[in-house]
Design a protein around this nucleic acid. Structure first.
Length: 431
RNA sequence: UGGGGCGUGGUCCAAUUGGUAGGACGCUGCACUGUUAAUGCAGACGGUGGAGGUUCGAAUCCUCCCGCCCCAGCCA
């Protein structure tokens, strides 16, 4: 008997197949029972009649949710079945019968309980759909970068110092009484590989000990960070635009079932096409003032400001030319207006916040030294980074794309913790 | 790091503001040949986050502690 996954049953109508998986739910109705099976690719309803198949009926009758099993039966199209297909079960092999109540019910649960049982929560259709979309997003992102000629050069996770200041770093014991820090960004290292290979990117986890407790923050999140020699800010805005569009459209194209499971309004994603609106920081301040938001020039934007700026467009919005004072030390100043940095942020629609931050990096040795001193950063750990400005320095630019915020936006997730298999937040490191 | 909020059976919630802590789900059993988080009936188990205090009496009021949630800041 061929073993078929549930997402393939449509092409096996009228045939007898075997499914391997778990009992998702069981509805009993007298001499008929309707077990629902799941195998990770989907859920299908079975039908078993006591009179026609007493052995299978007895095996499934009263079987607790999430017991593991192998079932064989005839696939039929039936409008009465959820999903349109069902299996008329002929044979059942129980692999493990659960002997205690399964913790996750098909009812409502609180956030704390679900996170405490994250290892089981991910078995539910909604969570499984989110994780599949996450996979699609990662695949699409790497595919796009590869096709654009970018080489994956991953940055180290242990680092000797910080990228953007010494606070918010996780310190760990290294060898022989030395200290190391978990990376908060791979950017500095891709600047080095960009000088070696031209167009590069890294993709991996970043760690921030920020005591943030919002729905947009994790202490461990994944970031994709391109860096290109000779690229300017405009090049990076175009790359980010193309990358985001490709990720979104790949998800729309390849994950319709998952988006449907999540009841996501796909129209809000289909409209995501280039070009994205580009707003300078100066213009953004004007827009905010028109909307009665009093943010003075020189201040950074918060959630409210981001929502105002992104609300008018069905696409992400690019804000560029921020004041240098509110951006990282390595940002190249605008030659026309040195008080501005050649940096940009991309704000996702629907309040999902900043998903990209990037810009052009300082290429001058002298200016970089000056900025290190201004920010009270030690010179020694940055010696290698300064070398990049001593040996064939060129203009170069890059950005960081936050994977979880992007996936949260695609899936319409209420909280970013739903879009990573095992979220790490300020108060939770279990399971 | 500030501001606000919440902790009641395994889970999700109630308790008329200080007066006998209940219900639903889940679990067990029975009934039911088209269920859609099935339904109906019956049954069993089981709880006020912790420590003090006020009071004749505390889930309820006070103090401290613990856990969690939301918002802001910071950022992706």
């Amino acid at each position: 008997m061929p073993v078929v996954s549930i997402d393939q049953v449509a092409s096996h109508v009228g045939k007898e197949i075997t499914l391997r998986g778990w009992l998702y739910n069981l509805r009993e109705s007298g001499k008929l029972i309707f077990p629902q099976f799941r195998d990770g690719t989907g859920v299908i309803q079975g039908v078993v009649s006591r009179t026609e198949n007493p052995d299978a009926f007895q095996a499934l009758s009263g079987l607790p949710q999430e017991s593991s099993l192998e079932v064989t039966g005839l696939v039929r199209a039936d409008a009465r079945a959820p999903g349109g297909y069902e299996m008329q079960v002929t044979a059942v092999t129980i692999i493990q019968k659960i002997t205690e109540p399964y913790p996750i019910q098909l009812k409502e649960h609180g956030v704390d309980f679900l996170l405490e049982n994250r290892h089981l929560w991910i078995r539910t259709p909604r969570q499984a759909a989110i994780l599949r979309i996450r996979d699609e997003a990662i695949f699409a992102a790497r595919e796009y970068m590869h096709k654009q000629g970018y080489v994956l050069t991953d940055s180290p996770i242990f680092t000797p110092s910080s990228c953007e200041g010494t606070t918010n770093l996780f310190e760990v014991d290294y060898m022989d009484d030395r200290k190391a820090y978990l990376t908060q960004s791979g950017q500095l290292y891709v600047e080095a590989t960009a000088a070696a290979l031209g167009k590069v990117y890294c993709f991996g986890p970043a760690f921030r000990a920020e005591r943030s407790k919002t729905r947009r923050h994790l202490t461990e999140f994944w970031m994709l960070e391109p860096e290109a020699a000779f690229a300017r800010m405009d090049d990076m805005m175009a790359l980010a635009e193309g990358l985001i569009t490709h990720i979104i459209q790949s998800a729309v194209e390849h994950c319709p079932k998952e988006l449907d499971t999540l009841k996501r309004d796909v129209k809000l994603l289909e409209t995501v096409r280039p070009p994205f609106p580009r707003i300078s920081y100066d213009e953004a301040i004007e827009i905010l003032h028109k909307h009665g938001n009093p943010t003075p020039w020189g201040e950074d934007f918060g959630g409210d400001e981001e929502t105002i700026l992104s609300s008018e467009h069905g696409r992400p919005v690019i804000v560029h030319h921020f004041p240098s004072a509110i951006k990282a030390f390595y940002m190249q100043p605008d030659p026309q207006r040195p008080e501005l940095a050649l940096g940009f942020d991309i704000l996702a629609p629907e309040g999902y916040g900043e998903i990209v931050g990037g810009g052009e990096r300082i290429s001058s040795y002298e200016l970089l030294m000056e900025r290190l001193r201004q920010n009270d950063l030690p010179e020694e750990p940055f010696r290698w980074y300064l070398d990049l400005r001593r040996f064939g320095s060129v203009p170069h630019s890059g950005f960081g794309l936050g994977l979880e915020r992007t996936v949260a936006w695609i899936t319409g997730a209420e909280h970013i913790r739903e879009v990573i298999p095992f979220p790490r937040t300020i108060y939770r490191i279990y399971p």
